[in-house]
């Protein structure tokens, strides 16, 4: 779907016309530069590659330097591909929030905050042991049984256990657009968006 790349700015709340308090996330989206147009003849599918966020030239590998030079822009930090834009765009064109002007709902993809190595209670919402007494000792947040014994004699793949939590790609579906400020490239959506302030996000129709 058509989309743009942006940054999470922070959260606030806004009162609606009916006097209801709406929790909102502020996103700084675009302007993004078209860095490559993929066509079905050449690449096998149609898409638009766009870039966002400034990067220093000395931190850019030579291959990418040439890629950005072709598009006539400075090196960009994030690149992403989208398809099905309403208008046709050329390499070097700038996309702004205007593409969302007729929309009410959008999807936002981000990387959730990393939580480090966590147990199963936080990671998978296991209940732990409900009793602190009745013979329980040092196993309040334990995972419990991992499976049966001599048959199958192993732990099944995908068994939920402790480990690195967060830092995953998460997509929030159907967030309502509260306001579009094309001048300042700001987008106000209802609800929360994964990731920390300043982290990169992808906004899609």
């Amino acid at each position: 779907m058509p989309g743009l790349i942006g940054k999470k700015v922070g959260m606030t709340s806004v009162f609606s016309a009916e006097g209801k308090n709406i929790p909102c996330t502020v996103l700084e989206v675009g302007p993004c530069v078209v860095t490559q147009v993929k066509t079905s003849e050449k690449d096998g599918y149609e898409a638009l590659q766009i870039g966002y966020g400034e990067k220093k030239e000395k931190h850019t590998v030579n291959a990418l330097k040439g890629h950005f030079k072709k598009a006539g822009t400075t090196p960009k930090r994030v690149l992403a591909e989208f398809s099905n834009y309403k208008d046709t765009w050329k390499v070097g064109d700038t996309l702004t929030l205007d593409i969302f002007n007729d929309d009410q709902w959008i999807d936002v993809t981000g990387t959730s905050k990393g939580k480090g190595f966590q147990g199963v209670v936080k990671r998978y919402n296991f209940r732990g042991v409900n009793d602190a007494t009745h013979g329980q000792h040092n196993r309040l947040r334990a995972p419990g049984s991992l499976g049966a014994s001599s048959d199958p004699s192993r732990v099944f793949k995908g068994m939920r256990m402790a480990g690195r939590t967060g830092g995953d790609k998460v997509k929030m579906l159907n967030l309502k657009i509260i306001k579009i400020d094309a001048e300042k490239n700001l987008l106000l959506v209802k609800g929360s968006v994964p990731g920390a302030k300043g982290s990169y996000i992808i906004v899609e129709k």
Partner: peptide, 14 residues
């Protein structure tokens, strides 16, 4: 953070 202040300013009630 400045952008945050800007957005809040837009919706601020006197």
């Amino acid at each position: 953070m400045d952008l945050m202040k800007y957005v809040e300013g837009e919706y601020a009630i006197e």
